[in-house]
Amino acid sequence: MATLAHDASPRAGGAALRSTTGVGLALALASALCFSLSGPLAAGLFATGWTPGAVVLVRVVVGALVVLPFGLVALRGDWNAVLRNLRLLVVYGALGVAATQFCYFAAIQHMQVGPALLIEYSSAAAVVAYLWLRHGQRPGRLTLVGITLAAAGLILVLDLTGTALDAVGVAWALGAMVGVSAYFLVNARVDTGLPPISLAAGGLVVGAALLGLLAAVGLLPVATSTDAVDLAGAAVPAWLVLAILGVVTAGLAYVTGIGAGRRLGARPSSFVGLLEVVSAVFFAWLLLGEVPSLVQAGGGLLVLTGVVVVQQGEAATRRTVPPGAVEPVTVEPGPVEPVTAEPMTVPGAAT
């Protein structure tokens, strides 16, 4: 039996619940900030001749190499936990890491970055729909208001003026959306027995292996450069940029994201994840000199407002459920539900 954290159920009472929520929000925000840094850093590498495939492959491989030793130590020799969750680890690495990256870059070969990201980040709404239809976790009215505000803000931040859609590109972007949705749903699993850092390590290793395979057969074009990267007016060695991409935007981002999902549930953490797009615009301004427009700034405020309203709505829902009234959601034995891709990057980059 697989147990998901129920977004509407009280997992602790009073001060304990507030403390758990506070830590979860801090971890979710940290994860979004880490992921968002990948876009501007990757854009700097692209300008020197790196291909998106090469950046993503190195980023995930470095992340896996850094996190894996800590993940093994955290297991404390409990290899049964790995064997019990082997299929889940494969799903997490295949969907939450490899598929998100690959589908996103395939999408932007056929359409502009803005609409591709909008489709990818509709994963937050997809998580809401999945939990509602599959597990009966119906969002409250305040949560729905927050969803609407966040969606409107996301459209403004991505500045979709004059964009055109392509059927093939939309299909690949939807694939990325499925991967991101799986990322948040797997993060919310509370019954695995795997420490967050061990789950992150397993997912990154699987993702690195799959991306390496795609590169080996030529489906993920790889080209590199040794030229320094221009960031915030300074020439930064390429190896240092790659190290930050691997350690911070892959390793740390995944570990904190899993910790957030287990404390908040899939629904709230997926909406906090939308702040990745907003903070990516800020980092692009800081590191690349790409000044956001007033429309984008207003959209960012709308996204932030929507995230806050969603969190208030989730808190209100938890308060209306008597302690012990809602049991953990169970899933019949069988194939693991697509449960997440990492958000990827931002306009002009790769998450």
Results as ranks from 00 to 15, higher is better:
residue 290 E to L: 07
residue 73 V to D: 09
residue 148 T to I: 13
residue 306 G to Y: 03
residue 69 P to N: 13
residue 161 T to F: 00
residue 108 I to D: 02
residue 148 T to L: 09
residue 317 T to H: 07
residue 310 V to E: 04
residue 258 I to D: 04
residue 11 R to Y: 04
residue 101 Q to S: 11
residue 333 P to R: 13
residue 267 R to C: 01
residue 20 T to L: 09
residue 302 L to N: 00
residue 270 S to G: 10
residue 337 E to A: 12
residue 50 W to L: 13
residue 15 A to G: 08
residue 154 L to A: 03
residue 96 G to L: 07
residue 111 M to P: 04
residue 264 L to G: 02
residue 271 F to C: 11
residue 308 V to W: 06
residue 339 V to I: 11
residue 292 P to D: 13
residue 128 V to C: 02
residue 140 G to I: 00
residue 93 G to C: 10
residue 122 S to M: 12
residue 159 D to K: 10
residue 147 I to N: 01
residue 98 A to W: 01
residue 214 L to R: 07
residue 27 L to V: 00
residue 172 W to A: 09
residue 260 A to T: 07
residue 178 V to H: 01
residue 186 V to K: 00
residue 95 L to I: 08
residue 177 M to P: 02
residue 309 V to R: 03
residue 108 I to T: 14
residue 147 I to C: 10
residue 181 S to H: 00
residue 260 A to S: 13
residue 35 F to D: 03
residue 227 D to C: 06
residue 36 S to M: 06
residue 252 L to I: 15
residue 182 A to L: 06
residue 291 V to K: 15
residue 300 G to A: 09
residue 84 R to T: 03
residue 273 G to E: 10
residue 216 A to D: 13
residue 24 G to V: 00
residue 60 V to L: 11
residue 315 A to L: 08
residue 154 L to T: 04
residue 3 T to A: 10
residue 286 L to W: 15
residue 147 I to T: 07
residue 345 T to C: 03
residue 53 G to H: 06
residue 4 L to W: 01
residue 24 G to L: 01
residue 261 G to P: 04
residue 40 P to I: 08
residue 120 E to M: 11
residue 335 P to F: 14
residue 28 A to E: 03
residue 319 R to V: 08
residue 43 A to H: 10
residue 314 E to C: 06
residue 291 V to A: 14
residue 186 V to R: 05
residue 181 S to L: 10
residue 190 V to D: 00
residue 211 L to N: 05
residue 97 V to F: 03
residue 84 R to F: 09
residue 133 L to G: 11
residue 236 V to N: 07
residue 278 V to G: 05
residue 91 V to C: 05
residue 346 V to P: 03
residue 228 A to H: 08
residue 129 A to Y: 06
residue 307 V to C: 03
residue 221 P to G: 15
residue 35 F to L: 13
residue 132 W to H: 14
residue 197 I to L: 09
residue 265 G to L: 04
residue 176 A to P: 06
residue 273 G to R: 08
residue 145 V to M: 07
residue 267 R to N: 12
residue 156 L to K: 03
residue 93 G to L: 02
residue 194 L to M: 12
residue 134 R to Q: 12
residue 94 A to F: 00
residue 317 T to K: 04
residue 189 R to H: 08
residue 346 V to I: 10
residue 322 P to D: 07
residue 298 G to A: 13
residue 37 L to H: 02
residue 116 A to S: 15
residue 12 A to V: 02
